[in-house]
Amino acid sequence: MEVDKGKGEAEETRKVAEADRDTVTLKSSDGKLFEVSKEAAARLSTVLAGMIAGGSIDDNGTDLKQIGSEALENVVDYCNKHANSIPSAALISSSISFNTAPFKEPEEWERKFVDRLSHDALFDLVEAANFLGMERLLDVTCHKISEMMKGKSPDQIREVFNIKNDYTKEELEEIRQELAWAFYDD
């Protein structure tokens, strides 16, 4: 499914404006319009599901002032890809068994989806997913961030994410002592 980028087509579609459309139109902070499968949007986003159920979806493009066009394009892309993908058995099984991690690993296509994002696009997407209540997309993006942290020293992590170390030397030493159990195992 291709994404409409605010051109005339989306406007045309909206003019038809039947109540039983199977897509919804979303409007980014910078005024671009995107169409997304209504079913996928409702399934993947608690916020969109609430808006669809509550009838607060605007056929002329529901305003999402907090989300830029690039992030919204990724959100819509994700929804549409998700609508077309067959969930693996791991995703279907909802019961938490004793010995497996309670959260689900990303699918192969989801990994690729976030791997191609730039640093900023990734964080834009995390924020958008958070704003829209998209639990699964949050899982996938947070997983990506954690991958960027794994196996790195604190200094390396600070460098990757531009984290400013605002501790004094004494404070750092204090923390290391307090959390000796965490540092000892390495």
Binding site: H143, I145, S146, K164, L179
Partner: peptide
């Protein structure tokens, strides 16, 4: 959510020193 995906309690606690 990010820290949870570091899997071990120690790895998560080590982030305390970042800032």
């Amino acid at each position: 959510l990010v820290l949870m995906r570091l899997h071990t309690a120690a790895a998560a606690a080590q982030t305390s020193v970042l800032s």
